[in-house]
Amino acid sequence: MILLTPPTGDIGHRVLGRLLDAGTHVRVIARDPFKLSMDNRIDVIQGSMSDADTIAQALPGVTRVFWLPPGDPSLPSARAAYRGVSQAFCDALPGSEVTRVVSISALGRGWPKPAGLVTATLEVDDMIARTGVHLRALTCASLMDNFARQIEPIRATGMFYQPTPGDKKLPHVAKSDVARIAADLLLDTGWTDVQELPLLGPEDLSFDEMAVILSEFLGRPVKAVKMSMPQFEEMMRGLGASEGMAQAYVEMMTAKNEGIDTLDMTASRRTTPTTFREWCDQEFRALIGEI
């Protein structure tokens, strides 16, 4: 049995779909089961992934787990949102039948400064690894799909906003590639040990270059606008982030600006082939149609 949580998150629901397409029965933890489609191949445990009793109900018979804390921005800190949410799961792993875990975290192992959400997700990987299970931690570059949050300003003003210099090249990966790799690992029972798999996308792009691609795709000018870090922090608070989480976002973006995503550029890019142009055609086109 495979346990997947959260099943309604943007990556989780993609992984769930791939597992069901493969004919696999899946158990999920969901706060609101009514958000899931009715499918007799899905065994739903209602509750929170941070709750020890819920974890105790979910783990019997499970040998493989997809683990991705949702990063609730209302929690007081990144550690609370990632380590805190994962503690009950990690406590339960040594006495369970689970042998393999696939997690989603971020590039940045070895970064010498606080990096907010990145630091917290890597600490979760360490927590899971210490339980003795086999682990594949998918350490992701920035997600192309984050542009979905900027559809309204792009359509209304032809601009999107980032706390990053417009000409700085960074790796970007599509969630569809991340979900495909996660599902493949969950279906494969042959791998062992603990490894990080950096997912870098096919190329490094600056936000100015991405703006050019968006302009071509939409047929009108789109511009990348650099925000200051204080402006970015204020924006995150306005979107509902706690003081601690807003600061964690600032630490993460500061680290990205300083090069945290380029610490490990040796990974093969063939496993994450979706280009930003392809993502625009496959994902952004549908999102634009919803506004």
Rank of each mutant, 00 (worst) to 15 (best):
M1S: 09
I2N: 14
I2F: 11
L3S: 15
T5H: 08
P6K: 13
V15Q: 09
L20C: 15
G23M: 07
I29A: 13
A30I: 09
P33M: 05
D39H: 07
R41G: 15
I45M: 08
S48E: 05
S48D: 10
M49V: 03
S50D: 13
S50F: 01
A52R: 11
I55L: 08
A56Q: 10
L59H: 13
G61W: 01
V62G: 10
V62S: 15
T63A: 05
T63M: 00
F66P: 10
P69E: 09
D72W: 09
P73T: 03
S74Y: 08
S74L: 00
L75F: 00
S77M: 02
A80S: 06
R83Q: 03
S86K: 07
Q87S: 07
F89Y: 15
D91E: 04
P94F: 00
P94G: 03
V98T: 03
T99R: 09
S103F: 05
S105M: 12
R109P: 03
R109Q: 06
R109H: 13
P112R: 11
P112Q: 05
G116M: 00
G116R: 03
L122A: 01
L122M: 05
D126L: 08
A129S: 14
R130T: 07
V133Y: 07
H134P: 04
A137L: 04
L138P: 05
T139N: 09
A141T: 14
A141Q: 15
A141Y: 12
S142E: 05
M144H: 15
M144T: 12
R149F: 00
T157V: 15
M159I: 13
F160G: 02
F160D: 09
K169T: 04
L170Q: 12
L170I: 15
V173S: 14
D177I: 15
A182H: 03
A183N: 05
L187R: 04
L187I: 03
T189E: 10
V194T: 01
V194A: 01
Q195W: 01
P198W: 00
G201H: 07
E203P: 00
D204E: 11
S206Q: 10
S206G: 08
F207S: 14
F207M: 15
F207I: 00
M210D: 07
A211G: 10
L214Y: 10
E216S: 06
F217E: 06
V222F: 06
K223F: 08
A224C: 11
M227A: 11
S228T: 11
P230M: 03
F232P: 01
M235S: 06
G238I: 02
L239R: 11
A241D: 00
S242P: 14
M245H: 03
Y249W: 00
M252L: 10
T254S: 11
K256R: 09
N257Y: 01
I260M: 11
I260Q: 12
R270D: 08
P273M: 03
R277P: 09
W279M: 06
D281N: 12
D281F: 07
E283I: 08
F284S: 02
L287Q: 05
L287D: 10
